[in-house]
Write a protein that binds this DNA or RNA. Structure first.
Length: 421
RNA sequence: GUGGCUAUAGCUCAGUUGGUUAGAGUGCCAGGUUGUGGCCCUGGAGGUCGAGGGUUCAAGUCCCUCUAGCCACCCCA
């Protein structure tokens, strides 16, 4: 195709898919509202530092996936790759900080990551998420999971499993990290380059490894949950108890770690059986009690999740068709254009969805368009109608056609529609 | 960022060992029906065969580069 094509990894949201994504957001927001969450919207770009400090400068997201640019004032800005850091920033920079805690917030919008596009993976993608700030009660972890889980159910997504783990906090995670290092140390030689590198940079990530050599080692590797300190352990148990109260089944997964630095204690993902391998994660989340301080604010615990809407929609049953115009007003004669427009406007004032077709295509083509678009009725204005000051109204399902004066047209439509029911 | 597969009409795809003016279905426009849709028939428009370069008498077909999509890694939603 000649012309300018869209940038790699972006997509035009055509009406059908856009409707599906908007539906997912609408359902999610309404559900979150039932739990007391209120929607907020933060800027699409932020200071680069927000993500470098918040997400972590050892992560791939920050290292090689950010859309960073300098504005004309020399500021380094970044298109947001995720929503949690922004939400925490907005909390501290607004009157939200004055509210009684915890504060429950929800958001949805585009996110940007420069990575390799593929099915269900885009450089500009969309997320829906919720965050709870200001309280570290484990029951809130379960609440966030419950919102996420019920949301998927309401959308009709099947075939999912909730993967749950606790990765400990600042007290016990270092001990676990060391245990991992000690465990893998003697096996370094037989591990491949990639896994060795991983172990060096971010030891917990070794658990994500899919290499066969490592896999056999993984079974016997130290488990996060065996190293939790007392506080983390009892918190995790309360999460499990609360999940039972919500009636949500989970799968304990000691290998589940998260890619962003700010997570602590509870981590979870929802996987789907149809999303293979690396893209099976439908959404993820967890607790991030240290994030606020990483950003330079006072300590403020938090927990949340974010879901990729493109992936969720990919797995949702198709939406029923959007409401379409049921009445078409067609000119069968060029001079009828004015009457066609006036008639269409009259009907719209009566609350009907109406498409006006005053153009110069053949009547046959216009009728076919109306029929294919799902119209019930066609109002026709041609030479004869023009002269007599009337409109011909035709019911497409059976071809019944009547003549109507302009000022009585609404009742004509009504009677044709009720009879056809 | 690495490797593999792919790219032909708006859409879904054919195109035989390189060989005349590149096809089908569908969609679009028009006509058959001198103003009336669905089914049927006829005709038309629409392609620099993803882009650029190369080999050859000759390239949609073979080679190289680039771009884009998909898959597997990496990573994440």
């Amino acid at each position: 195709m000649p012309g300018i094509s869209r940038p790699r990894g972006t997509d035009d949201l055509l009406p059908e898919r856009l409707a599906a994504i908007e539906h997912a957001v609408t359902v999610g927001m309404a559900l979150a509202a039932e739990y007391g969450y209120r929607r907020l919207e933060t800027p699409i770009f932020e200071s680069t530092d927000l993500f470098v400090r918040g997400v972590g400068d050892t992560t791939d997201v920050v290292n090689r996936e950010m859309y960073t640019f300098a504005d004309r004032g020399g500021r380094s800005l970044t298109l947001r790759p995720e929503g949690t850091a922004s939400t925490v920033r907005a909390f501290w920079e607004s009157e939200l900080r004055q509210e009684s805690l915890p504060v429950r917030l929800s958001y949805a919008g585009p996110m940007f990551r420069y990575d390799r596009p593929g099915r269900g993976r885009y450089r500009q993608f969309h997320q829906f998420g919720v965050e709870v700030l200001g309280e570290d009660e484990p029951e809130l972890d379960a609440e966030v999971i419950a919102v996420a889980w019920r949301w998927l159910r309401q959308l009709g997504v099947r075939g999912t499993s909730l993967q749950l783990n606790s990765i400990g906090d600042a007290e016990c995670r270092p001990r676990y990290r060391q245990a991992l290092l000690d465990y893998f140390e003697p096996h370094l030689a037989q591990m491949d380059q990639l896994d060795q590198e991983r172990l060096r940079r971010n030891p917990l990530r070794i658990l994500d490894s899919k290499e066969l050599d490592s896999a056999s080692l993984l079974d016997a590797a130290p488990k996060t949950t065996d190293f939790l300190c007392d506080d983390c352990r009892s918190a995790f148990e309360r999460v499990l108890t609360a999940l039972e109260a919500y009636g949500i089944e989970y799968q304990l997964n000691p290998l589940l770690v998260r890619g962003l630095d700010y997570y602590a204690r509870t981590t979870f993902e929802v996987w789907h059986e149809d999303l293979k391998g690396a893209q099976n994660s439908l959404f993820g989340g967890g607790r991030y009690d240290g994030l606020s301080q990483l950003l330079g604010y006072p300590a403020c615990p938090g927990v949340g999740f974010a879901a990729g809407l493109e992936r969720v929609v990919l797995l949702s049953p198709p939406l029923q068709a959007q409401p379409k115009p049921k009445v078409w007003v067609i000119a069968a004669q060029p001079m009828a254009a004015k009457v066609v427009i006036e008639t269409a406007e009259l009907l719209r004032r009566g609350g009907r969805r109406v498409v006006a077709d005053p153009g110069r295509r053949s009547l046959k083509a216009k009728m076919r368009s109306a029929e294919r678009a799902g119209a019930d009725l066609v109002a026709l204005v041609g030479e004869d109608e023009l002269a007599r000051g009337i409109v011909a109204v035709r019911r497409l399902c059976d071809g019944t056609q009547v003549e109507s004066a302009l000022d009585g047209i609404e009742s004509t439509l009504a009677s044709l529609l009720t009879v056809s029911q």
